[in-house]
Each structure stands twice: as C-alpha cells, then as structure tokens.
C-alpha cells in the first residue's frame, strides 16, 4: 500500500469515495475476521462488517487522529459487535446440542481461510483447527467472546479494553481470566481436535 492511512483519510474527508474504498479494501479482512469470530456465521459477519464500515464512514469527520486509524476502526467494529450483542442477547445463546450454523460445514469457507502454512496436509489440519476453534468460540457467552476477541485478535491492552467496556481494570482482568479459562476448558475437553501437545494430554489424564 503506497498511500498512507492519513492521506487516504484526508482524501475521504474531501468526499473522495475512491479513497474510502481503498480503506475498505485494505482493512476488510481484519474487520471481517473480528465480526466472523464474533458471530460465527458468514451472513451475520457480513452484515456486521458492513455496518462497521458504514459507521466509520459516517464518523470520518469526528476522527481526529488521536489514535491510529486501525485502533479507531477496531474500536468501532467492537462497538458494532457489542451493540449487536445487546440487541440479540437472547438469540445468540447457542446450545450444545444445536450449535447453530457451522462455519466449516459447507465448502464455501474453505477458500476463505488464509493460512501461512505451505503443505496441503498442513493447510488441511490448520483449517480443521480453525473450524474447531470457531465451534468452541460459538459455545461461549457473547461477553466472553467479545473480551477474547478484543484481547487476543484485536490486541487491545487491558486499559483500552477497560475504556471501551467502561469498566475497571480489575474487572477486565477477572473477566478475561474467566473467559480464557472457559475457552481453555472447552479446548482441553476436545484436546484431540486441536492437536494439543502430547504431554498436555498425558497430564490431563492425571488431573
């Protein structure tokens, strides 16, 4: 990308739609990933990601470069997901028996996962792990999912999370701790799906 975000932003502010499109194209996968991890299905992720970009567009004039554009974009995406969570709180509780639409069930998703590994076998394994991770994520309550996404995928600091969730640092610590523990329990319970290291498996038998 030759043009910097700042340049693109100032072009956007003059009403240059192409500049905005460039921004969308640059960050669409990042935003989509967050939305996808959050809702676990393509249709909703698509809607949410679009919504996030529309909001970005509408709020362009209020962005004053106090943070990097990416942080701001992530912030809006997280907010969009959270708003959606509030709206649909009831609908998103996924039961264990019926985990809802699964990302890996169809073949469409297969193309969509970007992997850094090379060999076809490894790609297949990685893809499988990804699918399983999403399956496990879908089982977590939305609040836990959100904090995990913010911390692990978006890479926000504890302070930033506290600010965005409007809670104390201590709350972030304990919530994140609980969310990680919940995810960990689910992963450990399905250790074979994630290729958990052998020694871990061995030890799991003991505990």
């Amino acid at each position: 990308m030759l043009i910097s975000d700042d340049d693109l932003l100032s072009q956007c502010r003059t009403g240059d739609r192409d500049a905005f499109q460039a921004l969308v194209e640059k960050y669409q996968h990042k935003v989509y990933t967050i939305a996808y991890r959050f809702v676990g299905n393509e249709a909703d992720a698509n809607d949410l990601a679009q919504e996030a970009f529309i909001k970005v567009y509408q709020k362009l004039s209020t962005f004053r470069g106090e943070s990097s554009f990416l942080t701001w974009l992530y912030h809006i995406t997280a907010n969009t997901c959270r708003d959606e969570l509030r709206k649909r709180q009831n609908k998103w509780t996924v039961s264990l028996d019926n985990p809802g639409p699964q990302p890996g069930d169809g073949t469409a998703r297969v193309e969509g996962v970007r992997s850094t590994m090379a060999g076809p076998e490894e790609v297949a394994v990685a893809r499988e792990v990804q699918r399983n991770l999403q399956r496990v994520l879908n089982q977590l309550p939305a609040e836990q999912k959100l904090i995990l996404i913010m911390r692990e995928i978006q890479g926000f600091s504890y302070e930033e999370i506290a600010q965005q969730l409007e809670c104390s640092l201590g709350t972030v610590k304990s919530r994140l701790s609980r969310a990680r523990a919940a995810l960990k329990d689910l992963v450990v319970a399905n250790a074979e799906l994630f290729g958990l290291p052998g020694q871990v498996n061995a030890l799991k038998g003991r505990g």
């Binding site: 996968h29 991890r37 991770l133 995990l148 995810l183 992963v187 290291p197």
Partner: peptide, 13 residues
C-alpha cells in the same frame, strides 16, 4: 496454548 491458538487464528477473508 489457548491464547496462542486465538492469537494465531487465521484471518478470515
């Protein structure tokens, strides 16, 4: 392991 799994999770296109 879990944190790294999340962090390393692939970008979804």
């Amino acid at each position: 392991f879990v944190i790294e799994l999340m962090q390393g999770s692939a970008e979804v296109l």
